[in-house]
Amino acid sequence: MKRYEGLEAILLVDDDLPTNFIHNKVIQKVVADAAVKSITNVQEALDFITYSGIYENTSEIPRPGVIFLDINMPGLNGWDFMNAYDQLDKRFKARLIIIMLSTSPDPEDKKQALMDKGVVTFLNKPLRPEMVTAVLDNYFKEIL
């Protein structure tokens, strides 16, 4: 397991509970000392990163350095998240890495995700340990 400078937490945004469970376990195999939070809808995820809604007055809870964001969710989806995210104050976006996830075979999803300036990469689900390691090694400095 690795430790990364400045990575206190990782956020999973996916409506599928089994997927969140599996991704949580994969991340825990790779990363030491980072909290993993799973949220099943876009509005709650936005509230979490902006300390609003049910997350008002929760500044003691570590906020993510990385978000693994599913594209296809009922109601608001990953694209809706990114549209709202683009409108957020910069203080909520500082050092936040967003990775779009999907099981979709549609190449247009990947193309659209990579065109969004807030998305650093697009990955196909399910996450595997080497995928998580590659992303974190690319954007965070490992603590030896």
Rank of each mutant, 00 (worst) to 15 (best):
L96F: 03
L123D: 00
T133P: 06
E5T: 13
I97S: 06
L46E: 03
A32Y: 12
G65E: 00
E44H: 06
L136I: 05
P62D: 00
K125G: 00
M100W: 00
L123W: 09
A9S: 13
H23S: 09
F48C: 03
Q28V: 08
N72V: 08
L12W: 02
I39M: 10
K2Q: 12
D70G: 00
T58H: 11
I27S: 01
L101R: 03
V26T: 14
I98Y: 03
R63L: 04
Q87K: 15
K2L: 14
K110I: 02
E8L: 13
F21Q: 13
K29F: 11
D15C: 10
V13F: 06
D80C: 05
A34F: 02
T19K: 01
S52D: 05
M82S: 02
K111V: 08
W79G: 05
V120E: 06
E130K: 11
L114H: 09
P129M: 06
L96K: 09
P74F: 09
S59W: 11
S52T: 12
L136E: 07
L46S: 08
Q87I: 02
A45D: 03
K29A: 14
G6S: 07
R128Q: 12
K29N: 13
M131Q: 15
M1H: 15
K25R: 15
K141G: 11
V132R: 01
P126M: 06
D70H: 06
K110F: 10
L144Q: 12
P126W: 06
K125V: 10
Y85W: 08
V120P: 08
L69P: 08
D89A: 12
T133E: 15
I39S: 03
N24A: 11
V66Y: 07
S59H: 15
L144V: 13
A34M: 01
L69C: 02
K110Y: 09
K125D: 05
K141V: 14
L12P: 04
P129C: 01
E8D: 15
M1L: 11
I61A: 10
V26P: 04
I67Y: 01
G75M: 09
G118K: 04
Y55V: 10
L114M: 14
K125I: 09
P105F: 13
H23C: 04
T58E: 11
E5R: 14
L144R: 11
G6R: 09
L144D: 14
V31M: 04
E8S: 13
M73Q: 04
E5C: 15
R95V: 08
P107N: 04
V31W: 09
A94H: 15
A113W: 00
P129K: 00
D86P: 07
A32C: 11
M82W: 08
N41A: 00
L123S: 07
I98T: 01
M115F: 12
D80L: 00
M100G: 02
I39C: 01
K93C: 00
